[in-house]
């Protein structure tokens, strides 16, 4: 019975696989490098992964509904630009923070509305808004670098009760995400819609409303992530957020969320984000050329997708065999 139970846990809690992979990788790295196994290095890794992990929490909801959002990096960029610009002009933190987070949510909401309204593939819809949002930000800033006030550094590099602030923010976001996914209607409906759109409609679930809400939620998360990134970097640079959507989506997929929707966990996505940073960290320790990082990341994602397809195939074979057995007996 024991192995069967273990198998059930692994198949139901899909984050277990990535957690094991992360621990193994960490083990290997601690053998390779003596500095790896230190508290400060752990904190550094978590801080490094906080931006993508926060965005991965939002993206998990979208992928659970069988959607995707390519524009999260652009939302991050445009709202960071807005923040930097507002601080430059008004110097009012309350105003800048609230405008940034609200506009991030609104841009996500807009994505959701477009996806629902035009019923075009979310990939194409958000590819279009990606270009629009990023273009708008460059227009807004004139492609210039804008510094943010020094106090902002607290959000990126400061500590509270001895813990780096980005990690605290991540913890709060994860708690909110887990709560929404497991204890609210939004969470259940998001999983249900991704699992079977037809069933969702036959059960008259509010498919359109839920879809819009998950994109808005992801937009909000991108806004939060943008503020932390801005604080860590010290100001707006025109390269901010480019390619981050790849890392975010990869983290979610590595974390065990099915691209076809319906099943996945917040914790898995966060571990996925940490795993990706560990790989960079490992390559760094091995003194690998920075030019191969992207290749390795891509290969890891490819491997994760292949393993996922294989286990889905295995599962369908098992279910089929069970049905066969039922017919025979």
């Amino acid at each position: 019975m024991q192995p069967k139970r273990l198998q059930t846990i692994v198949s139901r809690q899909k984050w277990v696989a990535i957690a094991v992979a992360t621990i193994v990788l960490a083990g290997v790295l601690s053998v390779v490098s003596p500095v790896f196994l230190t508290l400060s290095n752990f904190q550094a890794i978590l801080v490094q992964s906080s931006v993508t992990a926060i965005m991965a929490v939002g993206m998990t909801f979208i992928i659970l509904t069988a959607g995707i959002d390519i524009s999260v990096g652009a939302i991050l960029f445009v709202t960071s630009a807005l923040f930097a610009q507002l601080m430059l002009v008004t110097g009012n933190y309350a105003l800048a923070f609230s405008v940034t987070l609200i506009s991030a949510t609104v841009l996500g909401l807009l994505n959701g509305l477009l996806v629902v309204r035009f019923a075009v593939s979310p990939l194409i819809t958000t590819l279009a808004t990606y270009s629009i949002y990023r273009g708008a930000a460059i227009h807004l800033t004139g492609a210039q670098n804008i510094p943010v006030p020094r106090e902002m550094g607290f959000l990126g590099n400061g500590r509270l009760w001895g813990i780096p602030v980005p990690i605290l923010v991540l913890i709060v976001i994860v708690i909110i995400g887990v709560y929404i996914l497991n204890h609210t209607r939004l969470g259940v409906y998001a999983r249900a819609i991704g699992n079977s759109d037809r069933s969702a409609r036959e059960t008259s679930l509010p498919v359109a409303r839920i879809t819009v809400l998950v994109y808005a939620l992801s937009g909000f998360m991108a806004g939060v992530a943008g503020l932390i990134l801005l604080a860590r970097v010290g100001g707006l640079q025109s390269g901010i957020g480019i390619g981050i959507e790849f890392t975010v989506i990869a983290a979610v997929i590595l974390g065990g969320t099915k691209l076809t929707g319906g099943s996945g966990t917040i914790v898995g996505s966060v571990i996925g984000a940490v795993f990706l940073v560990l790989i960079d960290n490992g390559l760094n320790l091995l003194n690998a050329s920075p030019y191969i990082y992207d290749m390795v990341r891509g290969a890891v994602l490819m491997a994760a997708v292949a393993i996922d397809r294989y286990s889905a195939f295995r599962q369908s074979v098992v279910l089929e065999a069970r049905r066969e057995a039922r017919i025979v007996d």
């Binding site: 204890h183 259940v188 249900a192 699992n195 036959e202 319906g262």
Partner: peptide, 27 residues
């Protein structure tokens, strides 16, 4: 004839989905 169930959800979630018990926010 074609079942309108959600395979990746639990039995309880499936049965109650269109009228989940609980407060406004929390199920």
């Amino acid at each position: 004839q074609e079942l309108s169930l959600f395979g990746s959800l639990s039995v309880a979630e499936n049965i109650c989905i269109s009228d989940l018990p609980g407060a406004k926010m929390r199920v």
